[in-house]
Simulated assay, not measured.
Amino acid sequence: MTRMRLIHKRYATLLLLASSASFGNLAMANAERSPIDSRLQEAAQQVMQQYNIPGLAIALTVDGKPRFYNYGVASKETQQAVTSDTLFEIGSISKTFTATLATYAQASGQLSLTDSPSQHLPQLRGGAFDQVTLINLATHTAGGFPLQLPDEVQNRAQLMDYFKGWQPKYAPDTYRSYANPSIGMLGMIAAKSMNLPYEEALEHRLFPMLGMFNSFITVPANKLPLYAQGYNKQDVPVRVNPGVLAAEAYGVKTSSSDLIRFVEENLGITPVEEKINRALMDTRVGYFTHGAMTQDLIWEQYAYPVQLNTLLDGNANKMIYESNAVTPLNPPLAPQQAVWVNKTGSTGGFSAYVAFVPEKKLGIVLLANKSYPIEPRIRLAHQILSELAEN
């Protein structure tokens, strides 16, 4: 065995020991152990070994109660163990908070999702971008934005110029093109309707109302020890770079404990004030379909029970990198109970997945400080929630 292989084997062994120790501490903290605990641990460690994941935080909500499973380390350098308070970058799951901010602004009478962008950004009046609605921005159906803004867009003035000159590839409501620029603009508009910068609207208004006090766009100095180190596919340490509309599209850092609370609020398990509840429900209205997937406001849902292959198809690369024809729902579909609701999220050094089933009052959060594929996240979540649903 070469020296490098020996080092890698020793690191993997240490990682599993750290994982087991973390799990053991968790088990002692929980008075009741579920039969699924050992299977979850085995499946989680298999994924960690296969993709060389340093740390993994899993949270479940079952029978109205959260359960936490923490494995490995938040940083290879410090060897600090992952906990339910460790902060992870959640990538595009951040978009669900952008959508919730917009629906909260609507519930507060500050905007309508049927508004055009220029009703809030008059400088965009008259262009093609003014022909879409805020619903289009939240459902990726504005007409064909790229996944990312062009590199030359580096400030607010250049951003406005970009949207003034934007020309759609498709008519609104006809194609779904997964994109950061459109949801980013929804966040900007929602915050502007509240007379707040986006970061302040999220950190000082929305997160406190959701009881998420360990969630941030900019991690404050006193919380930096909780911020996990991310690792890219080559195992190089990385963290997300700030950029134009990054906060609105993929900028949230949060913990498994905060994120499972958000899931429980969406499930109606954890009570919230009436406007927030209305906002959460409004994000789960279905507007378009593509195959088995119904596009809500950022959330994507599937009729439940759902086959694993259906979820894999709905979260495949073609849904991220290609434009796909959609069918509008007229009238829109009210929030459903017998559905699997999900959202993936990734940055250069972190990977995340959230899914919940309202009918079963079940939900799962997966957070990792390593860039690894979407498919194993969905396989793990589907395995766990399917077993729980049968019990």
Rank of each mutant, 00 (worst) to 15 (best):
N391L: 05
H120W: 07
M48G: 09
L26G: 09
Q167T: 03
I58N: 00
M319N: 02
A18T: 12
N30T: 14
K65M: 06
Q79Y: 12
T174C: 11
Y71C: 04
E265D: 02
L60D: 04
M1K: 14
I36N: 00
T2P: 09
D151W: 02
L137D: 03
F207M: 15
K233W: 03
G345A: 11
V132D: 02
F163Y: 15
P376N: 07
N70M: 12
G72E: 03
H382S: 13
D258C: 11
N136Y: 11
K343D: 13
K95G: 08
A81T: 11
A57E: 09
T347A: 05
P225V: 08
P242W: 04
A389M: 08
I364T: 07
M281G: 14
A138L: 11
R176D: 05
S38A: 14
K370S: 03
G64A: 10
L147D: 10
A221H: 10
V238M: 12
S94E: 04
Q307T: 10
G243P: 03
E199G: 08
S19D: 03
N155L: 01
N136E: 01
A190F: 12
A102E: 00
S257K: 14
A157F: 07
I58V: 14
I135Q: 14
S177K: 10
Q167D: 13
F350T: 13
D151C: 02
H290R: 15
L113E: 11
N391M: 06
H204L: 12
Y51A: 13
S371T: 14
L111H: 00
T254W: 08
A99Y: 01
H204A: 12
S386K: 09
N309G: 08
D282Y: 10
E77N: 13
V47C: 07
A57K: 03
K360T: 01
L202A: 02
I58E: 01
L226N: 11
V285H: 07
I90D: 03
L329E: 03
K223G: 04
Y104G: 06
A201T: 02
T61F: 01
N30Q: 09
T174H: 03
I378T: 12
A31Q: 14
P328V: 15
Y104N: 15
R39D: 12
K95L: 15
L121N: 10
Q80E: 08
Y198V: 08
K343C: 05
L149D: 12
M160T: 09
L60C: 01
R156E: 08
G187W: 11
N222W: 00
I364K: 05
K192A: 11
N315R: 01
L56D: 00
Y11H: 04
Y104D: 08
R3T: 11
H290M: 15
V272P: 00
G230A: 04
Y227E: 09
G91D: 12
T327E: 08
Q307Y: 10
N342Y: 05
A128Y: 08
L196Y: 05
E390P: 00
V244P: 01
